[in-house]
C-alpha cells in the first residue's frame, strides 16, 4: 500500500520540487554579492553533480558489488547497475555543460585543466566505456560480470573527484556544503533553495531510474516474446 503510494507520488512530487527549485532559484533568491545573478546556477549545477557522482554512480557501484558478491548475485542487480549508469552518464554530461556555462563568465574560460574538471571528465568517459562494454557482450552473465568489475574499478575515481578540491589547488571552488570544518558557506534562503534542489534532483534520479528499469524489463519481455513467436513459426513451417 505504502509502496504503491510512494511509487505513484514519486513523479508528481519530483515535478513539484523541481518547479519549486526553479521558482525559488530564479525569482525569490537574491543575487550573490560577488557573482550576482550567475550564482543562480548554484541551484542547478551542484544538484546535477550530486546526482551524477554520488547518487547514480553510487547506486551503480553498490548494485555491481552486490552482483559480484555470490550471495546476492542476480541479474536484477545487473539491470539496476546498468540503468543507474545510464542516468549517471547523462548527469555527468549535464554537470560538465552547466559547469562550463558557469565557468565562462566567472573564471573567463569554458574549460580549465584543473583536477576537479579533469577527473569529472575522466569519470564521464568511464561511464560511456561502461555502456560500450555492455553493448559488446551478448551473453547476459558474462556481460553482467564484466560490467560489474569495470564499474567497481571506475568507482575509484569518485573519491578522487570529490576530494580533488581539498587535495589540490584547483580553479574550481572548494566544497560549499560538505566543507572540511562543517561550516556552511551559503546563506539564508540560498541555502534552503540549494537543499530543495538536491532533494528534487535526487528524486528525479529515482524517477528516471524506475522508468529506465521498467523499459529494460519490457524490452526483455518483448525480446523473449518475439523469440517464442519465431520458434512457433519455425515449428509451423516444419508441420506444413
Amino acid at each position: 500500500m505504502i509502496k504503491q503510494l510512494s511509487q505513484r507520488l514519486l513523479g508528481p512530487v519530483t515535478l513539484l520540487l523541481l518547479a519549486l527549485t526553479f521558482w525559488l532559484g530564479l525569482w525569490v533568491t537574491p543575487p550573490d554579492k560577488v557573482q550576482g545573478n550567475l550564482a543562480r546556477l548554484l541551484y542547478l549545477h551542484p544538484a546535477v553533480a550530486w546526482v551524477a557522482l554520488y547518487v547514480s554512480f553510487g547506486t551503480a557501484t553498490i548494485a555491481s558489488a552486490l552482483y559480484l558478491w555470490k550471495r546476492s548475485r542476480s541479474l536484477v542487480m545487473d539491470r539496476v547497475a546498468h540503468c543507474a549508469m545510464e542516468v549517471s552518464t547523462v548527469f555527468i554530461l549535464l554537470t560538465l555543460i552547466t559547469g562550463s556555462i558557469w565557468g565562462r563568465p566567472t573564471w573567463g574560460v569554458w574549460w580549465a585543466w584543473d583536477a576537479r574538471l579533469t577527473s569529472t571528465a575522466i569519470l564521464g568517459v568511464f561511464t560511456v566505456a561502461y555502456l560500450a562494454l555492455r553493448r559488446a557482450n551478448d551473453d547476459a552473465e558474462l556481460r553482467a560480470r564484466r560490467s560489474a568489475v569495470f564499474a567497481i574499478i571506475a568507482a575509484i575515481n569518485v573519491p578522487i573527484v570529490h576530494f580533488s578540491v581539498d587535495w589540490w589547488k584547483t580553479l574550481h571552488q572548494g566544497a560549499t556544503v560538505f566543507t572540511q570544518d562543517g561550516n556552511l558557506l551559503v546563506h539564508g534562503i540560498m541555502l534552503w533553495t540549494l537543499f530543495i534542489s538536491l532533494v528534487a534532483f535526487t528524486l528525479l534520479f529515482f524517477w528516471l531510474l524506475r522508468a529506465r528499469y521498467r523499459l529494460d524489463v519490457l524490452r526483455g519481455e518483448r525480446d523473449q516474446a518475439s523469440l517464442e513467436e519465431a520458434l512457433v513459426q519455425r515449428r509451423r513451417e516444419g508441420v506444413h
Binding site: 537574491p30 543575487p31 550573490d32 560577488v34 548554484l42 573567463g108 558557506l185 540560498m190
Partner: peptide, 11 residues
C-alpha cells in the same frame, strides 16, 4: 582567470 570562493552571500 577569476577564482571565486565557495561562499554565497546575498548582494
Amino acid at each position: 582567470l577569476v577564482k571565486h570562493s565557495a561562499s554565497y552571500i546575498a548582494a
